[in-house]
Design a protein around this nucleic acid. Structure first.
Lengths: 145, 145
DNA sequence: TACAGACCCTCTAGTTACTATAGAGTCAAG
DNA sequence: CTTGACTCTATAGTAACTAGAGGGTCTGTA
């Protein structure tokens, strides 16, 4: 079918530069080239790229994508490890949600420190950021990842 | 008081490299130097650094921190803009939480695609990642229970 | 006085997943 | 034969650090 990179980009809603980046990173196999050195892609490339983009839309890292691709290449293997990988990814997402919820609580508490007085010097928010009072809402503080 | 960078790092639970980085970025004023060219910090530096670290623990960017620092330097100004900044930051956090919650739903749905068969080839998770079926859970899809 | 070890210095490169640019080449239509 | 859309490679930039190389400083001990 032999489409050029721009067409592939349109079909997958992916930027041209991103496609070349995936190739450089070994996530997308090198396509054949035209006489004028243009990349020429086929069906397999479209599917492979869509796979990557779906994984990315699920917030997976490229190294997680690489791991899943290795499983794709060995279809007779036990699928337990894939489930473990997805499970762990779900866990990471849950942890991040929890962190952000705590964070939001801290921020709301911080906002309430504004005394209603109208100047920066007496506002309480900056004071709350200078001492620890803005961080006393929750049990443990976990810096972000 | 004149403490060296290692002591400052210990007191603020911040890495030495990070302190030098903040200085380079203009977030922390350049300290005086000893005869041997060592950085020598005082109380003001400790407070300033703690301020930065608290902001960072609230997931603020360094450019948000810079903005807040500018307010610190003009205590007679109206504090509304600070509230706006914090408000916007809270909003960003809320948006991210919502995104991650959707994401988690997608991932859980993906996990349920595993047919129970034990090989990668028939697992359904990789298939779900190749086509779009793992992304169909979203917004207005309410299965009955 | 010599030396070990802890600390400090600057500078550079690496991290993640791209995005954006520069400067050049290719190709089809007018 | 030129214009314009497209492509190529290579490089630098993003955020907020972290790690390392290769050196200097300082203090305590032999």
């Amino acid at each position: 079918m032999n489409i050029k990179i721009g067409e592939l980009a349109r079909r997958t809603e992916c930027q041209v530069g991103t496609i070349r980046y995936y190739e450089k990173e070994g996530l997308l196999p090198e396509p054949t080239r035209s006489g004028g050195n243009y990349r020429l892609y086929g069906e397999a490339h479209i599917e492979r790229l869509q796979f990557i983009r779906h994984c990315r839309s699920l917030d997976m890292t490229l190294s997680e994508v690489r791991a899943l691709q290795r499983y794709q290449d060995t279809p007779d293997q036990d699928c337990d490890e894939i489930k473990v990988l997805v499970d762990e990814h779900i866990h990471q997402v849950e942890v991040r949600i929890e962190e952000l919820s705590q964070l939001k609580q801290h921020l709301v508490a911080l906002l309430s420190k504004c005394s209603g007085v109208r100047t920066v010097g007496s506002c309480g928010i900056l004071q709350g950021l200078s001492d620890c009072t803005c961080l006393l809402v929750s049990t443990d503080d976990s810096p972000t990842s």
